[in-house]
Amino acid sequence: MSNILISNIEVIPGKRVSQHLGLVMGSTVRAKHAGKDIMAGLKNIFGGELGGYTELLSEARQEATDRMIEQTKAIGGNAVINVRFSTSSITAGASEILAYGTAVVLEDK
């Protein structure tokens, strides 16, 4: 488990930003699996959650976040604040998941 604090807000209660290290990001590009497409097609007919895609996107978000954390560690940060996620289509059947935020050094107040 990482000791890097990840937050989608700018201010962490009980902490203060002692150093601003700049933008950090991590991304991954994932392609759909043909078998999952077939199952998704059936779900479109009968309804329900597309579990294969839910799992794929969850894994992609985690991988992008892990890469952002590694970049934060490499520049000496102990937190990433104001974290956001973005998704974009790269080509038919492939999408990028991007995690980004501001690397900082936090200290107790």
Rank of each mutant, 00 (worst) to 15 (best):
E49Y: 10
T72Q: 07
L21E: 10
I6D: 06
E55V: 15
M1V: 10
G48L: 07
V17L: 02
E107M: 09
V83R: 10
N78S: 03
G47W: 00
I4D: 00
I12P: 02
I45W: 04
G51F: 12
A64F: 00
S88R: 15
I4S: 02
D108I: 04
Y100Q: 13
G41F: 10
G26T: 04
G47S: 02
Q71T: 06
D108Q: 10
S89W: 03
A103R: 00
M25K: 14
S86Y: 10
Y100N: 12
V83I: 14
S88A: 08
S88G: 07
A31E: 15
N82Q: 10
A79R: 00
R67D: 07
F85H: 12
A74E: 14
S58Q: 09
D108G: 05
Q71M: 15
S86I: 04
L42W: 12
S95E: 08
T91Q: 14
T72W: 03
G76I: 01
K109W: 05
K43A: 13
I81H: 01
F46I: 09
P13W: 04
T102E: 15
L50M: 11
A64S: 02
A74C: 06
A99Q: 01
S2P: 04
G76N: 04
H33E: 15
A74P: 07
I45H: 08
T28C: 09
M39R: 15
E63S: 09
G52I: 01
E107R: 07
L5R: 11
G35A: 13
V105S: 06
K32L: 12
V104D: 04
L5W: 04
A34D: 10
A40K: 02
A40T: 08
V17P: 02
A92R: 15
V104T: 04
D108R: 08
E59H: 08
I6C: 05
Q62G: 08
G22H: 03
K32Y: 13
I75N: 06
Q71P: 05
V105C: 01
Q19D: 14
N3F: 09
E49T: 11
K43Q: 13
A60W: 11
A31H: 11
S7V: 04
E10Q: 09
G26W: 00
T72P: 08
K36M: 14
A64I: 00
A60E: 05
S89C: 10
T65D: 01
I4E: 01
L21V: 08
L21N: 06
T65P: 02
V17Q: 02
A40Q: 03
V11T: 13
K15E: 12
Q62P: 03
D108W: 04
